[in-house]
Design a protein around this nucleic acid. Structure first.
Lengths: 124, 124
DNA sequence: CTCCTTAATAGTAATTGGTATCATTAGATA
DNA sequence: TATCTAATGATACCAATTACTATTAAGGAG
């Protein structure tokens, strides 16, 4: 009784996010993969990004300026988005009081998303 | 030397977000306004939501499940999004170490966005 | 190893949230 | 009240994402 098939396309999507290491969006993943596997479809990229995020293998770090970005790094860290150049930086600061909040007022917290906005060093 | 005009449309958009009090998105704001001012255009709603968020009168609380949501409450608080019913709840917990972080590694932090995801009381 | 079932893919059409354009309207100042 | 021009309404447009469907290929059974 199988349910999930381990297709090469799914592996390619996962590896692309990992190798690019730029909090890639679907289009960037697609462009990266077609250099080695030209027949892949954009729909397949979107589908697998959704599934990999759903299963926890990748992390959906949010939708900024129109597109959704993904991260392969499961370690605790947050993000800073420069409002000028739109570059996404990692922020290693750890906030244990957020991480340890697993429920409040009857709401079961399964994950959270913390993003900072401002101006980066290069742009100021 | 004038710059910003206080149009009734801008007031309607602001008041709609406030009166709806559901972290409304553009379409919800539009649907609310046309009941009282049927001639308003969606473009005007989008334009004013952007401007009101830019000026700080409203708060862009992020893009979830495809659309951007707005909040009229400027007080410190965060949000919880139920992954099942997609309802957005207020979380009143305050995290001063986040709020007080104004720069790190040369990045100038101007704002931040913290959202929690999980299952709400009604859905579990 | 081969066959068979069906999940997943490729290709593409369709949808949708949001923006750009432009002629027209209506705030604000004099 | 007249004038200036920012803002609107209507609509065309665009980019990100999803839906659809015939075809392909994981992977378990024999």
């Amino acid at each position: 009784m199988e349910t999930k098939r381990n297709t090469i396309q799914r592996q390619l999507v996962y590896n692309a996010v990992k190798e690019l290491d730029i909090h890639a969006n679907a289009e960037q993943v697609y462009e990266h993969i077609i250099t080695v596997h030209p027949s892949i479809s954009r729909a397949t990229v979107y589908r697998n990004l959704n599934q990999l995020a759903e299963s926890g293998e990748l992390l959906n770090i949010g939708s900024f300026y129109g597109t959704t970005h993904y991260d392969h790094n499961a370690n605790d860290h947050y993000h800073f988005i420069c409002e000028k150049c739109k570059h996404i930086y990692d922020i290693s600061n750890c906030f244990p009081e957020i991480k340890n909040l697993t429920q409040t007022n009857g709401l079961i917290i399964k994950s959270h998303n913390l993003s900072f906005f401002g101006i980066c060093n290069e742009c100021k």
